[in-house]
Design a protein around this nucleic acid. Sequence first.
RNA 1: GGGCGGAUAGCUCAGAUGGGAGAGCACAGCCCUUACAAGGCUGGGGUCACAGGUUCGAUCCCUGUUCCGCCUACCA
Length: 921
Amino acid sequence: MAELEKSYNPKGIEEKWYALWLQGDYFNPDTVQGEPYCVVIPPPNVTGSLHMGHALNATLQDILIRWKRMLGFRTLWLPGTDHAGIATQNVVERELARKGLDRHRLGRDSFIQEVWQWRAEYGGRIINQLKRLGASCDWSRERFTMDEGLSRAVREVFVRLYDEGLIYRDNRLINWCPRCHTALSDLEVEHEEIDGILTYIRYPFSDGSGYIVVATTRPETMLGDTAVAVNPEDGRYKHLIGKAVSLPLTGRTIPVISDSAVDASFGTGAVKVTPAHDFNDEAIAKRQNPPLPSITVIGDDGRMTGEAGRKYSGIDRYECRKIVVADLKASGLIEREERYRHSVGHCYRCKTIIEPLPTLQWYVKVGPLAAGAIDAVRSGRIRIIPEMWNNTYFSWMENIKDWCISRQIWWGHRIPVWYCREMRNEECRMKDGVIASREAPVQCPYCGSKELTQDGDVLDTWFSSALWPFSTLGWPDKTEDLKTFYPTSVLVTGFDILFFWVARMIMMGLKFMGDVPFRDVYIHALVRDARGQKMSKSKGNVVDPLVMIDKYGADAFRFSLAAFAAQGRDIRFSEDRVEGYRHFVNKLWNAARFIMMNLKTIDAQQLCLQHLAPGESQTSGATPSAVSLDLASRWILSRLAATADEVNNALEGYRFNDAANSVYQFIWHEFCDWYIEMSKHALYSSDEDRAGTVATLLYVLDNSLRLLHPFMPFVTEEIWQGVKGSVSALGVSEGLMLYEGRSIMLSRYPSSLSRDHQAEDEMSFIVRVVTGVRNIRGELNISPAAEVRVLVRTFSDDAERVLKGNLHFIKRLAKAREVEIGRDVEKPHLSATAVTNHFEVYVPVEGLLNIDAEIDRLIKEKTKVEESLRSLDKKLLNEDFLKRAPKEIIEKERARYRDLVLKDERLEGSIKRLKETGVKR
RNA sequence: GGGCGGAUAGCUCAGAUGGGAGAGCACAGCCCUUACAAGGCUGGGGUCACAGGUUCGAUCCCUGUUCCGCCUACCA
């Protein structure tokens, strides 16, 4: 980058540096010393394509990882993908359908091969997208949940839990997706409010003595009713309990029963009971003595079964609903229909309405595991950030139900259970012929039979995800990685998978590693669109991160996400702000361009020997030696130190937005707006300050780039390498200790630099004079081209000394032709005034000044001062305040009061003089 | 039904432990000043949703109300 372009263009540059980082193996911690710091990525679905949630998630992790790496930690960010059972199977099935095939015709083994084939072809997509973002994952450790190693971990865990009785099989109602043709866990069901109809149906008594009316939103299930239930306390129905009802359309006779779960105030107070298709009804049925029978009228394909009767058999459940209602109407058994809004469960993958079905499934008994997981958070061994999620976590964990882990699909970890078909002895029959085994058994361990068949189901995808923090590090082997990096440092994730994933990882980690899987859980926001809507393909409001990267560059995009990531709040994504941060990238770029342009004119020996002292802290390189620096340089070094502290503190607390804002504010509004402008004096006047100024420019740029690097890895590397080239061309890089090393990502992160409070105080005098003059220029509309005279009447020695010593800065920044400073400076006639505590600034504006405008301006300011004075006055006269407020607050307010009184008097004086002038004129 | 979060400038949002209301964008004025017009300087704009309470003092803590958003639950 000998000659920099006028603006930064990320195309090509991002790829170039990412390739270099990979080539240098910089993401790999193997050869690094230091305290371990580890993050495992929430594995995106292998079918996935990078969306805003991933982008935010990965950006935050990369910021942490790059930051810690630069701080000297032995840093591992472990990447990988999830096999995503149902989602992936769906995708491949759609693919097959396009070719006119389906998985049943293909057969299980061929289908699985198809999926692997698909993965080989497309599974790397999201990984490549993460690379575009700049993610510094150690790709040599990339894992996939279906890898052999991870599959072994899955079998190990399953068998151990089974042997301990924590995994069992049971036949009960589960959530069934008729489209995906599989069981789902409670978590995989999304409840959504929909408009339905509440149908009131008359159920005639068998003895012909009238009827009882029940209300239902699912009339078709009446074909499977096995009772009508009422509340035992309900006076209207008490006498009917035990009576027989003739179930319409079926001719079956069912009883009227009582159950306290029935709400007398809802509907008619009488409820039809369908144990096979409703969780409530199942519970009621089980409470009866003897339990009510269960009749399954809807099959696993969502069509009515033979049990529903010949007329309805084979018909889709919703078609059947219409027919049943029509048939009932024809018999005069529909009392009325009401519109009714209620929530209905949908499959989280395909949005099909869930059908509760009685089936035989595998479950994990979570109660015993949950206790430890609750304690880990309660005791602080795991910290959830922000804390507000603690409550959500606790309330879910405390009400946790057993976890259905079997899925009737093909893609996933096959359940490591075999069934003995012969069950030749008592022991085998006692065990139901169930063999849970890490490897495929050759013969039945109980009876020796060789007639074994493996369970056809696979495990819930989240079962393998739950093991991710240790299975990826090599468990069940005792690997070096596991020893070094477990427990991992922090998990960064969205709250939407707090239960699916985070809670289960904690349970499994505690169970199998005997320790928590991570110290911190940082829960970030959900990215919504500009109107606050959840982004979804169907709504068409999705913002594609890759489009953002193409349009604005990965750096601007990443920085935006970090700046958006305020804790505890959802993000409304606005493209305008990304554009704003692209401007910031460009600002930085141009600052670097400026510095490099001025580098050519410097004498290398002078720069190196006289102006760079060995760095006071190991992390920041050589520091410009303070003795020989001008005020501006000392000031910017101190501001840099303050900024480094702010950024480090903010990142320590996961306040990414604060960190981003600090560095933005520093680079733009302190370094560029003030320091670079001030540096021009030394640079252009070729006096002895030049070398110190160049040294400071180089130093502050270097440290700014490093501060910014975790947020904007590409542009910082590009500039840093460019400056490095120029610096070494000067032949001073050896002694400089700046821009050292092969890459900025391997340099040290700025921290614990020293402040220079005196320089900051002194600089504030200059700032106040300059802004005073600028205000006057702006408000009185004095052309920026016009040079003015500036007079400053000082009231303190400090102010006088500092201002006199830095006239050149005032001249440059305020565009002043000449500056006069002193205690005895007189206010010229026809001049505008700016008032501060330490001095008054006068700008003579003969001919230019509109006296009335200037008087208005001063009166406006005086009004503000007096307003503040009034409220302060009240406060300081309040005895309670004086009695109870802390001393330092009272002193602060008093000082403020004194300053304001002074200012008020001076303003008054200026106004008076101006009025006199006006009269004279 | 239960729980959580939000309500601050025209817009999008910051304000970590109570003590002088901020940023970015947008808007207005003046400037192509030799890093940057994707820029510079200046300016206007807020009863911090509403009502109470605690406190010497509340945008911040407590209670209630209204309006949004989310999570969760077996009222058919």
